[in-house]
Amino acid sequence: MSDKVAHLRFPTPAPCGRTPLTASGLSKAYGSQEVFTDVSLAIDRGSRVVILGLNGAGKTTLLRMLAGVESPDTGEVVPGHGLKLGYYAQEHDTLDLDVSVVENLRHAAPDLTDTQVRSVLGSFLFSGDDADKPTRVLSGGEKTRLALATLVVSAANVLLLDEPTNNLDPASRAEILGALRSYEGAVVMVTHDDGAVEALTPERVLLLPDGDEDLWNDGYAELVSLA
């Protein structure tokens, strides 16, 4: 299995302005339960940010807001010049379950030829008939690989990644982390995986629920697996 995993690379990100994504004054509550209040974040071109916080601190909620999937109660998310967003959702809700594996990839990159689409899918271990399977029958690990494949072809310049290495076999995980390491765009990541943080080499950390930002230092590394 591991022999078949091709060397993945994210394509060169689409050009964008200096700050492709800005969020200011974001708050979210569910009923009387406040998740976080007044969180602001500016994502500069090529910057790398890890979001840390205990379970329930709103990490996934914040990524969903940045992706435009969920609305904040207060504040706003403002796309900068040329923003092209790639969002990896932990629950794979970016995939269309009603179409085939191949169709999901075509939606993400309509300019690719059929040969190119099948070649990318092959590198994510979907070869031959597997590529024509309906997406809804895939296992959790297969959905993870497909969702990541759609990101790889998207030329996004800001990736929002929510636990991208969950469910991956060791060979696929190593490939994704290698691709992340050499990716030139900006990344905002939520993860419990020390190896993913190491591959990302983050510059900054955002701590939830307080929304405090700090420069990354190794003292934060021990919070990753606790988060």
Score class of each variant (00 low, 15 high):
residue 156 A to Y: 04
residue 94 T to E: 14
residue 144 T to E: 06
residue 172 S to T: 15
residue 186 A to T: 05
residue 204 R to F: 11
residue 22 T to M: 06
residue 32 S to T: 13
residue 119 S to T: 15
residue 57 A to I: 09
residue 73 D to F: 02
residue 85 L to H: 03
residue 121 L to N: 02
residue 99 V to K: 01
residue 40 S to E: 11
residue 163 E to G: 04
residue 105 L to K: 01
residue 138 L to Q: 03
residue 170 P to Y: 11
residue 32 S to F: 12
residue 174 A to M: 10
residue 191 T to D: 04
residue 8 L to D: 01
residue 139 S to I: 10
residue 177 L to C: 13
residue 216 W to M: 08
residue 75 G to S: 13
residue 59 K to V: 04
residue 71 S to A: 15
residue 151 L to N: 00
residue 217 N to A: 14
residue 115 T to S: 11
residue 111 D to I: 08
residue 173 R to S: 14
residue 19 T to H: 07
residue 54 L to H: 12
residue 57 A to Q: 08
residue 10 F to C: 05
residue 189 M to V: 08
residue 29 A to S: 13
residue 64 R to G: 06
residue 99 V to I: 12
residue 132 D to P: 06
residue 152 V to Q: 04
residue 71 S to E: 15
residue 204 R to G: 11
residue 92 H to K: 09
residue 85 L to Q: 07
residue 32 S to C: 08
residue 182 S to T: 15
residue 183 Y to W: 13
residue 51 I to M: 01
residue 225 S to C: 06
residue 71 S to T: 13
residue 68 G to C: 09
residue 15 P to D: 07
residue 140 G to P: 07
residue 140 G to W: 08
residue 182 S to Q: 10
residue 19 T to N: 07
residue 70 E to L: 14
residue 78 V to Q: 15
residue 45 R to A: 11
residue 93 D to I: 08
residue 195 G to P: 06
residue 129 D to Q: 14
residue 130 D to W: 09
residue 38 D to I: 11
residue 174 A to L: 12
residue 48 R to Y: 05
residue 5 V to R: 00
residue 34 E to R: 15
residue 203 E to P: 01
residue 141 G to H: 06
residue 12 T to G: 12
residue 44 D to G: 15
residue 16 C to A: 13
residue 120 V to H: 02
residue 37 T to Q: 09
residue 193 D to R: 09
residue 86 G to E: 03
residue 69 V to N: 03
residue 83 L to R: 09
residue 56 G to C: 11
residue 213 E to C: 05
residue 71 S to C: 12
residue 81 H to F: 15
residue 165 T to G: 08
residue 124 F to E: 01
residue 213 E to H: 05
residue 106 R to W: 03
residue 38 D to M: 10
residue 17 G to N: 05
residue 204 R to E: 09
residue 102 V to I: 12
residue 197 V to K: 00
residue 149 A to F: 02
residue 120 V to R: 03
residue 60 T to N: 09
residue 162 D to F: 05
residue 66 L to A: 08
residue 16 C to E: 03
residue 215 L to S: 15
residue 85 L to K: 01
residue 115 T to Y: 12
residue 143 K to V: 05
residue 93 D to C: 06
residue 190 V to Y: 05
residue 168 L to R: 04
residue 186 A to F: 04
residue 168 L to H: 04
residue 139 S to A: 09
residue 208 L to T: 00
residue 53 G to V: 01
residue 212 D to N: 14
residue 103 E to W: 05
residue 5 V to E: 00
residue 86 G to Y: 06
residue 24 S to C: 14
residue 85 L to I: 11
residue 15 P to W: 02
residue 113 T to M: 06
residue 211 G to P: 02
residue 52 L to W: 00
residue 101 V to E: 00
residue 73 D to E: 14
residue 80 G to F: 07
residue 132 D to R: 13
residue 221 A to H: 08
residue 18 R to Y: 05
residue 126 F to N: 01
residue 104 N to A: 06
residue 167 N to F: 14
residue 120 V to I: 14
residue 149 A to Y: 04
residue 129 D to C: 03
residue 111 D to E: 15
residue 33 Q to P: 02
residue 118 R to F: 00
residue 6 A to F: 02
residue 86 G to V: 09
residue 181 R to D: 09
residue 21 L to P: 00
residue 35 V to N: 08
residue 164 P to V: 02
residue 79 P to C: 10
residue 9 R to T: 11
residue 18 R to A: 15
residue 54 L to I: 11
